[in-house]
């Protein structure tokens, strides 16, 4: 099976039922997307497929259609995406394990809704669980990212 991740083509020989998450993590060594629940309850595995936020634990590799972007492809420590820059500025992370998914979900939201209200943020981001409780900082960082993207 072929797939394109962060602009690079890959070919893997696995069970077509294998979730994209485990192809990324164990076959391709791309570990930004995290395993948290395996059943779309936590959002830690969120990636983009053709720009749409998707829980990679729910996409069988045999059903994958479209290019995959993971947190590593969104921005890098040397060239941060606006959402990542806002996450750094607000020091959102505690353990940080959910944050790849939070950032990918937030980035997808801002593509579609550049000026989210508090209610929009709560509606979009509530599928991403944070056990450390960084929600107040996530809210603030989303707003900063929105403002910076608007100014860009």
């Amino acid at each position: 099976m072929k797939l394109n991740v962060n602009g690079a083509d890959h070919e893997v020989d696995v069970d077509p039922n294998m979730p994209l998450l485990w192809v990324l993590r164990d076959e391709l060594g791309i570990t930004g997307p995290k395993y948290g629940c395996g059943i779309a309850q936590c959002g830690a595995c969120t990636v983009h497929i053709d720009g749409q936020a998707v829980r990679s634990c729910q996409v069988a590799i045999g059903d994958l259609q479209g290019d995959v972007t993971t947190i590593e492809g969104l921005g890098t420590p040397d060239a941060l995406h606006a959402v990542q820059a806002a996450w750094v500025e607000h020091q959102v992370a505690q353990c940080g394990y959910c944050q790849s998914g939070q950032i990918m979900q937030a980035a997808a939201m801002l593509e579609l809704n550049p000026e989210p209200t508090d209610a929009d943020i709560d509606a979009v981001m509530s599928g991403n669980l944070c056990r450390c409780g960084t929600y107040p900082r996530i809210r603030a960082a989303v707003k900063t990212a929105a403002a910076n993207l608007k100014g860009a």
Binding site: G29, T70, W87, G96
Partner: peptide, 21 residues
């Protein structure tokens, strides 16, 4: 202070135990 791990945790580049290879 700026936590030393914030950049890595905001870019998916931090290696947690579950990511180790």
């Amino acid at each position: 202070m700026m936590r030393h791990d914030i950049l890595a945790k905001s870019t998916g580049t931090l290696t947690y135990g579950i990511d180790a290879k």
